[in-house]
Simulated scan of single mutants.
Amino acid sequence: MLSLKKSLNILKKTDALLEGHFVLSSGLHSSKYIQCAKLLSFPDLADKICKSLANKIKKNFKKIDLILAPAMGGVIIGYEIGKILKKETIFCERVNGKFTLRRGFSIKKGARVLIIEDVITTGKSSLECVKLLKKSNAKLVGFASIIDRSTKKSLKIKNKIVSHLKIDVPSYNLKNIPKSLKSIPITTPGSRFIK
């Protein structure tokens, strides 16, 4: 398994860990943004992190039939973890603002499904994926991510999350932004608002 120091070095080396003033997909403001797409654009470095995460998933979740990843952020990480664990992996994508299974993907009744994302902050996307499991009468095994940057206050998921890294990065709603953060121009890097 990769150490915290080595993992952070990889994130910084690939520009996956950014600093500034960001509005996250959740609408919260933060001084740090984790852009896993940058990490995943370096497959040799991402492979080390994916293998480490796959080992943690194996230890925590004994039976998985299917991996479900929300597009866009979860597609590559879902594929990589599926390849390592030798599990079927599908993704869902937004149609009219709601996650939908397309491209012939389906979830079998009773399937044990792991939902995997690149970064979990509030868990909103993951919980939207759970609706697809309920519709298919499948079973949620749990959640996994490269980075878990949630806090007890921000997280809407009540189940266990297995992550490669747990990073504590404060996030603020519009009313509570510190002065130091207010003075930095805002960047909105997430994919949820892309038209």
Rank of each mutant, 00 (worst) to 15 (best):
H21V: 03
L24W: 01
L24S: 06
S25T: 14
S26T: 13
S26N: 03
S26P: 04
G27A: 02
L28M: 14
H29Y: 15
S30V: 04
S31G: 06
S31V: 00
S31H: 07
K32Q: 09
K32D: 06
Y33S: 03
I34G: 00
I34M: 07
I34H: 02
Q35S: 06
Q35I: 08
C36G: 07
A37W: 01
A37C: 00
A37K: 05
K38I: 01
K38V: 04
K38N: 13
S41Q: 15
P43K: 01
P43C: 02
P43T: 05
P43Y: 04
D44T: 13
L45P: 05
L45W: 05
D47G: 11
D47N: 09
K48P: 03
K48E: 15
K48V: 11
I49G: 02
I49H: 01
C50E: 08
C50R: 00
L53Q: 02
K56I: 08
K56G: 12
I57N: 08
K58C: 12
K58Q: 14
K58I: 12
K59F: 01
K59P: 07
N60W: 14
F61G: 14
K62Q: 07
L66R: 08
L66C: 06
I67S: 07
L68D: 14
A69P: 14
A69H: 14
P70C: 05
P70G: 13
P70E: 04
A71S: 10
A71E: 02
M72F: 06
G73H: 08
G73A: 09
V75F: 02
V75M: 03
V75T: 05
I77G: 07
G78P: 02
G78E: 03
G78R: 01
Y79H: 14
E80G: 04
I81A: 11
K83W: 02
I84L: 08
L85V: 11
L85K: 10
K86D: 07
K87I: 10
K87V: 03
E88N: 13
E88Y: 00
I90K: 10
I90D: 04
I90V: 11
I90A: 08
F91K: 01
F91G: 03
C92T: 06
C92A: 12
C92R: 01
C92H: 10
E93F: 08
E93S: 09
E93V: 04
R94H: 05
R94F: 08
V95L: 14
V95R: 05
N96I: 05
N96F: 04
N96T: 08
K98W: 13
F99I: 08
T100V: 11
R102Y: 05
R102N: 12
R102K: 15
R103C: 10
G104E: 01
F105Y: 13
S106A: 15
S106P: 09
I107V: 14
I107M: 13
K108F: 12
K109I: 15
K109H: 10
